[in-house]
Design a protein around this nucleic acid. Sequence first.
DNA 1: CCACTTAAGCAACGGTGTTGCCAAAGTGCA
DNA 2: TGCACTTTGGCAACACCGTTGCTTAAGTGG
Lengths: 388, 388
Amino acid sequence: MSSTESPSSGPSSGPFPARPAAGLPALRTHNAALVLDLLRTSGADGISRLELAERTGLTPQAVSKITARLRAEGLAAEAGRRASTGGKPRTVLRLVPGAGSAVGLHLDRDALIAVAVDLAGAPLAERRAPLDFASGAEAVVDTAVREVTALRTTLGVDPLGVGVALPGPLDHATGLLHRVTGFPEWDGFALRDVLARRLGVPVVVDKDTNAAALGLALAGATASARDSFAYLHLGTGLGAGLVLGGALHRGARTGAGEFGHQVVQLDGPRCGCGNRGCVEALCLAAVAAGAPDEAARVLGEGAANLVGLLDVDLVLLGGRTVDEDPERYVRGVGAVVRERARRAGAPPAEVRAARGGDRAVADGAAQLLLAPLFGRADAASVAHHGSH
Amino acid sequence: MSSTESPSSGPSSGPFPARPAAGLPALRTHNAALVLDLLRTSGADGISRLELAERTGLTPQAVSKITARLRAEGLAAEAGRRASTGGKPRTVLRLVPGAGSAVGLHLDRDALIAVAVDLAGAPLAERRAPLDFASGAEAVVDTAVREVTALRTTLGVDPLGVGVALPGPLDHATGLLHRVTGFPEWDGFALRDVLARRLGVPVVVDKDTNAAALGLALAGATASARDSFAYLHLGTGLGAGLVLGGALHRGARTGAGEFGHQVVQLDGPRCGCGNRGCVEALCLAAVAAGAPDEAARVLGEGAANLVGLLDVDLVLLGGRTVDEDPERYVRGVGAVVRERARRAGAPPAEVRAARGGDRAVADGAAQLLLAPLFGRADAASVAHHGSH
DNA sequence: CCACTTAAGCAACGGTGTTGCCAAAGTGCA
DNA sequence: TGCACTTTGGCAACACCGTTGCTTAAGTGG
């Protein structure tokens, strides 16, 4: 039983402004997020004030003011100095990872993974439990609440919130589930608000592929500063997460990334969805037939379609099937993508295996809460539930 | 011969900041653009200060200040009053369309269309001329300069700039052309900077499909406030323009929208590009064979792929072939899109014919200059050339 | 030891949207 | 006709943003 009364209301659901106006507070938040993001990506190495100024375009003085605020809030700290270049040496600033944490919850058809991560995205704790979507919403929510609560007690401090990632079609903005494939009784379930009420912390829900892509977008920042890429997930199904211009692209109704049922063979074999010639059907059939190279080729054609349409320059492959033989899929998909790019006269997109293993989705789910801190997403569609 | 010396330099090409920091001027511009956009979309009806405040989220007082500035600059004006609701009646504000103008230039393989439009996008003048890409860059540029200059003299006032739209692959950010299909000598031509130098006004270049999509995004605002849609252009080729989240999606290298060479039939008939089973090849073959319904079906499968991947809720069809029998294509494509959406359990995207006829691209090209005023695009990738 | 260089903070400033208050301009009822 | 009331919109003071000019801190090198 919760001590609060209002069922939960998104921050902006009324006669919404087409595009939001900005005031001084928005400006302040924006620039602080910018600085915080640079602190995050520079990791343990840290970054100096002047470097921050160069990278953001802000005045050194402005950076000083902003970092002073961040230090006062405990989000940043000084950490040594750089070698002098003939004058006063630069002071190195670092993100304080322990200043906050978030929980990521991956609800899969048969298993649950709950993780806690710090501000830097580093793992703090993890729990796993079996799950059965068919047992209904109540049972699944009970399990989720139990695992998250256990995670929170081992954690000691309250997390910023809980990010939940799961397969089916759902609406990120409202937190409602739609017809989760194969489980019609989930249709219309207000997962976000129910969890927010029972857990007493902010909750965000998103598709599993979106969460994974977001996680990769933030984790990979150190390695490749690419701001657009596609994550293709090949497991029991085939889906995609799209990061365009540094932000997750969810589409009008969080439906973006329906990659599996792209038709790549007109009048081809019937797919479970009713279409003919879906990539997913062809791909999974090839895998089942023990022809992974053919599966990779088919996936490659789908990937090349996507690359051409969106002009992303990086494709990341993941999911159980890929993880069994990453090199083969990277090679097979890469070959098709490169060949198609060559024919189009365009520079080829890079194809790589996504890292993260089976924690990738849960880690990404946690980032649903952290990303707004770093200005990587709009903070909308978070269900708050005042509890203190 | 130009009186200026520096060849032209984009405003931000150096060691660029990952994401730009914002200051007070940026804030001011942002909010002014917001207000200006609402003035534009409300057209001749006008809009009151309090309505602007509600729609933007700004305080009425802030709106008063902003509109006062806009009126001082001649961009807005008072235009009558509304009926009273028991108190002082609201004063209606209107955009002053004549306060500025822009030129749009559509360079097609065999023809040139140059248009001048006012701030509201309404046509002011138009010129047409034959063109031949094969005659080389110099000749084409000469023709373009001649027609634009003629347009400017009939116009009387200096336009804000010239937007140029043309088919081939090109880079919007640098203004360089790449290997324009069939005309290798255009590869690497700095069209934007050459035109900016010869015309003495800011110039932007973009793909024809992108320009058309941008034009539709701004023109259609009155009818449907959809902020994401895809424009599919079926003419001598097949291409797409994508508007995602209110902004044109160009991709990493302005390559986005390569829709024609999406493979929808693995190992299908060979396309001119070298792939097998491209939508474009199948579609054009069906058209040539006198089977427009089959062409519409193929196009529909491609469109449904796109809708599923990006979750846009509107598809606009245009181009010479579509314009010959719009209803047939809208019906055929719509049928496939609706059926595929039904199977996926998603609300179907709407399919409509794009308006604008053969002026659509030129009108959209002009919007490349106007859109930044209304906050609809980043003002980057404009080649200025100080001339006064 | 001192001149020089580089980093970072203090203080004043211009300019943003916001708040509190008041004038202007209508309606509606006595 | 007069007066109370409602609603609009501007004026003035304000808090707070990043910026500018200058000073102080903290090093190197001759």
